[in-house]
Design a protein around this nucleic acid. Structure first.
Lengths: 125, 125
DNA sequence: CAAACTGTACTATATGTATAATACAGTTGT
DNA sequence: ACAACTGTATTATACATATAGTACAGTTTG
């Protein structure tokens, strides 16, 4: 069963956060093919959001071929190694590009950026 | 005159992107007190967005004490060194925390993160 | 079989974001 | 003074996001 223990509410639309969470867990190897997704109703209750919001996330994951749903049964993850690598590359590029662009606009040097990342990495280990 | 040359459209509400852009430019020291903001109409035309959207940004900046507006005249930046440092700390903490949390959820190690940041830093220099 | 769960679909409502058009009073520059 | 700009305010419209409630057919489980 796919766990949402590490899910941390953040910025932006909730349905997008859920999609990203699943993609990142797949990217990390914490979710594999045939893992069961929690039902729409269960997850909505767990996250404290509306079932329709969760359904929107699942619809997107389904359209992208990341989960597979059979009416009446639980949705399953479908992600082979090629899919996992593709997702990982996409997410890492987007995150790194975003972080670098932001820090650079603020006039942070490469070394200062490393110090900063290193400091926050330690604080959470 | 405050320049928007480095402004790159991103994710999230436009009015928030404009607010963040100004804060990052102040943080970088590229914008100082008494610098003139472009008028609402000029900036909306420059960015290709609605004047009301720009107005919403300026209203937020005004409420946070970052700009000062006199009806009829151009809005001015008001940012002393204390304000600059406060803004810089806030933004750096938020950005670094966000980047670290994201990379960690994807199972990226500290060294891999440094490699990644370093790679994207070089590509844009 | 039957109860409980599942995915899916639909309507309605509220709020946030963005656009469009207009108006008016204050200032700036010639 | 006068034209051109400025900030500010208003109304209307449209789409995105999130919630609420309901419904129905397929499956899983006891």
């Amino acid at each position: 069963m796919v766990s949402f223990e590490k899910f941390i509410p953040g910025d932006g639309p909730i349905y997008q956060q859920i999609v990203l969470y699943i993609k990142r867990e797949i990217s990390a190897g914490n979710i594999c093919s045939d893992d069961e997704m929690p039902s729409r109703r269960v997850l909505s209750s767990l996250l404290g959001v509306n079932p329709n919001t969760v359904q929107k996330s699942y619809k997107i994951l389904e359209d992208e071929g990341i989960i597979q749903s059979h009416s009446g049964a639980k949705s399953l993850i479908v992600s082979d190694e090629a899919m996992r690598k593709k997702i990982r590359t996409e997410l890492l590029e987007a995150d790194a590009k975003n972080a670098v662009a932001t820090l650079k606009q603020m006039g942070v040097s490469k070394n200062e950026a490393f110090d900063l990342i290193g400091r926050f990495w330690k604080e959470e280990d």
